[in-house]
């Protein structure tokens, strides 16, 4: 896949992401129309596909994928379209095979995101009380798995040590918020 697109998703390059989003939007809406997906659902599916391709980019596995960004995006989209069609068919009898769409993209399956447990929902409540920079710091460290050096480079911190101390400051604040609360 085009490495610079994967990099843009990984690094949150808003300009390029916006451009990518715009490039394929109308074509995708047209594509899902062929499957008789309702307009509002199409848009939702397009955004979900974008979210999923970003997740795959973040995990690093897109670099080794041979297909283009567009083919992959539409492949995920197709998977979600099938899912939506199954949902439709629960409400009324609906034949998947009715759609003989010949020009097409290979379907790409994605994992459904797990729901948070009760405790995690509570933690999320406190997490959102952190300042934006702390939320970002913890996201980069733990979800994205960036090293302190990588965070320093990405966010322009002076050194790895500055990241380390800022991170521990954020964790301390989060723990204080939890301790302070009467619920736990």
């Amino acid at each position: 896949m085009e490495h610079h697109y994967v990099d843009a998703l990984k690094q949150g390059d808003e300009k390029l992401i916006k451009e990518l989003y715009g490039n394929y939007r109308n074509e995708f809406l047209f594509f899902s129309k062929k499957y008789n997906i309702a307009g509002a659902d199409s848009l939702d599916i397009y955004q979900e596909s974008f979210l999923a391709i970003r997740k795959h980019a973040l995990s690093g596995k897109l670099y080794d994928v041979n297909s283009s960004f567009k083919t992959y995006l539409f492949g995920i989209g197709k998977h979600l379209i099938y899912k939506k069609l199954k949902e439709y068919s629960k409400n009324q009898s609906y034949e998947l095979q009715v759609h003989k769409v010949d020009f097409d993209y290979e379907e790409i399956s994605i994992d459904a995101t797990g729901n948070l447990t009760k405790e995690q929902e509570l933690l999320r409540h406190y997490f959102k009380q952190l300042g934006k920079s702390c939320q970002q710091m913890l996201t980069l460290s733990f979800y994205r798995g960036l090293t302190n050096e990588e965070i320093a480079t990405l966010k322009g911190y002076e050194s790895e040590a500055v990241v380390r101390s800022q991170k521990s400051r954020c964790l301390k604040t989060l723990k204080d918020l939890i301790k302070k609360s009467p619920q736990i």
Binding site: T113, F127, T139, Y143
Partner: peptide
């Protein structure tokens, strides 16, 4: 747990 929560928020 922070990892899961920050993924959702992200």
């Amino acid at each position: 747990a922070i990892k899961s929560v920050s993924e959702v928020e992200d």
